[in-house]
Design a protein around this nucleic acid. Structure first.
Lengths: 231, 231
DNA sequence: CGACATTTGTGACCGGAGTCACTTGCTGGA
DNA sequence: TCCAGCAAGTGACTCCGGTCACAAATGTCG
């Protein structure tokens, strides 16, 4: 199934495109629904795909030499992955999987390159995406060096909070599982559970439904994340 | 002091440039010698500089919120840093310092952008550099998840070995200090020293002079790095 | 609605790496 | 050549997070 123009316009990357370019993208697109735990992109192969996420949440995953899962990043709706291969036509460096049922719009790297060559703003945005990704990886790297486990967990939660209306109680929709968070932070699943227990016991956060975390006291969560207060 | 054409031609990024572009780059370049521990680029400011390393070794460094040093990458001769700002004109994300006396050729981002706009191969190579950097950060991230300290250290050493003639005994020139390696791996300086002691005691590696490490048994070092053998 | 799978939660135990306080060795500058 | 500063080396101790083996809770599918 192909994407519609309205669907494509929800992506920031395509906002400035002409109708003819959008039409081309529609005609060469694939819309796919992936079940939870499905593999969107495989590491180590020439995937040559760019995947725009419409709905759900994805996770970029690598493996150590001894087969241990390493979480690299999450992909939020509106964002995309697979952009490295547009530039260097290289192998896909990491696996990308769906953390829950997700709707993804897929293009080949050739298609994206063709549109980018005609639209410098798209090329620039793709380059900026690589730059953003490096900045995000720097931030994640710094997070990994925090000595206190509770601080690391709270900071990761802080980074997962949706950017919404300032008056609304912040929350995290599509909360990843404890295991999915653990591999981001080089911690064990049990350690994440213990921090969550403390946060919930103190009513700093609370679970609402299966995948939603309400941040009752965002200023306290942020304080712990920044190391200015203890859990 | 400005760079000469011969100096600039030693950089792979400039190999394909016309004489006139090289001449322009020469005229807008600065060659600087930095003493050990000097700051080449400051984080958090709009540096708008690209720095090509001719001699020495640099390290990209970030800080956690609580002021702890985090090592991100090393820069080898022939390589460069500061390339993010060419794309997104953003703030420089990390500090770059010289680990020992280093000679650096500096250009403004504008100059580099101007030359890149005229030379698609330069623009492509800069984009590829971002892609390479992401791949390198993935590898470093994976390294951080290795459970065994000795494996992490050996793998870092393995990555630092110069790519040379296969017959020659491999070595590491410009070996970073124990502290400089420790901040790359989230380990304490004492822990690095202990692994080095074991490696030297078993004659797997040996120090030659102040900054050189000879890899006497590369197949054993690699085995430890890959987790197929113990230290 | 029940069975099964997955996720969360819990407690006990242990070991390895950090920390601290030093000592020793090396390098560079006066 | 000497001395100060920096880097490497060492030993003892502590504690925190991983591991393991479970139980409980939740979610999904037939």
């Amino acid at each position: 199934m192909q994407a519609t123009r309205d669907l494509l316009r929800t992506f920031g990357l395509f906002k400035t495109l002409s109708d003819s370019d959008l039409e081309l993208l529609c005609s060469k697109s694939f819309v796919r629904r992936y079940e939870r735990r499905a593999v969107i992109l495989n590491a180590g192969v020439s995937e040559n795909k760019i995947c725009m996420l419409f709905e759900g949440r994805l996770q970029g995953i690598d493996f150590t030499i001894d087969g241990k899962e390493v979480g690299l990043y999450f992909v939020e709706p509106g964002d995309y992955c697979g952009e490295l291969c547009v530039f260097d036509s290289g192998l896909q460096p990491e696996h990308v999987i769906s953390l829950n049922s997700s709707v993804v719009v897929i293009f080949s790297s050739e298609t994206m390159r063709e549109v980018a060559e005609r639209n410098p703003t798209v090329m620039l945005q793709l380059g900026n995406k690589l730059a953003r990704r490096i900045r995000q990886m720097n931030a994640q790297r710094s997070l990994l060096s925090l000595p206190k486990v509770s601080q690391r967990v709270c900071r990761q939660l802080w980074l997962l909070i949706a950017k919404t209306d300032a008056e609304k109680t912040p929350d995290i929709e599509n909360l990843p599982t404890h295991m999915e968070i653990a591999i981001m932070l080089n911690l064990s699943r049990e350690t994440i559970t213990r921090v969550f227990q403390q946060l919930q016991r103190k009513q700093i956060v609370s679970r609402v439904g299966p995948n939603k975390l309400l941040i009752n006291q965002p200023e306290i969560l942020r304080g712990i994340a920044e190391g200015t207060r203890d859990l």
